[in-house]
Amino acid sequence: MEELISQIKKALDNNLYYLALLAALTLPDICGALSSEDGKATKQRYIEWFNKYVGEKYKGCLTGEDCYYFRCSFVHQGTSQHPKSNYSRVIFVEPTGTSNIFHCNILEDALNIDVRIFVMDILEGVEKWLREVKDTEVFKKNYARFMKRYPNGLPPYIVGVPVIS
């Protein structure tokens, strides 16, 4: 999990906002699954995780349900518009484009969020969640199957080169 967080931060540091945002939006699903008995992601788990670990920063602006709808539209259709969302679209401002911060604004019927702040808020939520669950039996069971990076390969399959599996 730490490697995934690190790579998302590197994406932000290199202005790879699509990649950082796409990856960050999947984290509530992953965290919800890793801390569940059946190890599966669900809409309800996503919403509850977001509301608990990130939602406080977005009260009156972005709910777990709206974030879930945005995640669905972006991950599956490549759009910031979802018919069930409370907003017509989500507009992310890149911090390299201006010295001003545009964050948590409702513009007409659209939600405006600073992409760096949003991604970092999710990552902070993941780090807090991880501290809470890392020693639980449910997490340990599910994390054993989590996709990890193996810098020296994964014997007996591949040895000597980095792999992700």
Rank of each mutant, 00 (worst) to 15 (best):
I47L: 05
K140N: 10
A20D: 05
A110D: 13
L123R: 03
E48V: 11
E48D: 09
L22H: 10
A110Y: 07
L62C: 00
G39N: 06
V115M: 11
V133E: 13
R45E: 02
H103M: 09
L21I: 03
L123D: 04
G32A: 04
F74G: 06
D109P: 02
F118H: 05
C61I: 12
S99Q: 15
D109T: 11
E56N: 04
G32D: 03
T42R: 06
A33G: 08
K52T: 04
T136G: 12
D114E: 14
C61P: 05
I47P: 07
S35V: 08
I101F: 12
D29L: 06
A144K: 12
N51V: 02
N51M: 05
E65Q: 09
L19Y: 15
I30D: 09
L19E: 11
D38E: 08
K140I: 10
R131Q: 12
D135I: 15
V75D: 09
A24E: 05
D121V: 00
S80K: 04
R116H: 13
L107G: 08
K59S: 01
N105A: 10
R71A: 11
K57Y: 02
I91R: 04
Y18I: 11
C31R: 00
Q81M: 14
Q77H: 13
L16R: 15
L16S: 15
F74D: 04
A144C: 12
T26E: 08
I117N: 01
L107P: 09
G32I: 03
N15I: 12
I122C: 00
H76T: 07
L21H: 04
I113A: 02
N51H: 05
V133Y: 12
Y46L: 07
E48W: 05
E124H: 07
G55A: 02
H76V: 06
V75A: 15
K59R: 06
E37V: 07
I101N: 10
K43L: 11
R71K: 14
V90F: 10
D38S: 07
E65D: 12
T42S: 11
I106H: 01
L21Y: 00
N14I: 05
V75H: 10
I122F: 02
S36V: 05
N100L: 12
V119M: 02
S88C: 11
L25G: 03
R45C: 02
M120H: 14
C104E: 10
G55F: 03
K52I: 03
H76C: 09
A144T: 09
A33Q: 04
K141N: 07
Y17M: 13
N142I: 10
K84Y: 15
P95Q: 11
R116C: 10
K9A: 06
G39Y: 07
F139P: 07
A24S: 12
V93R: 14
R89L: 12
F118N: 05
T98G: 09
L22I: 13
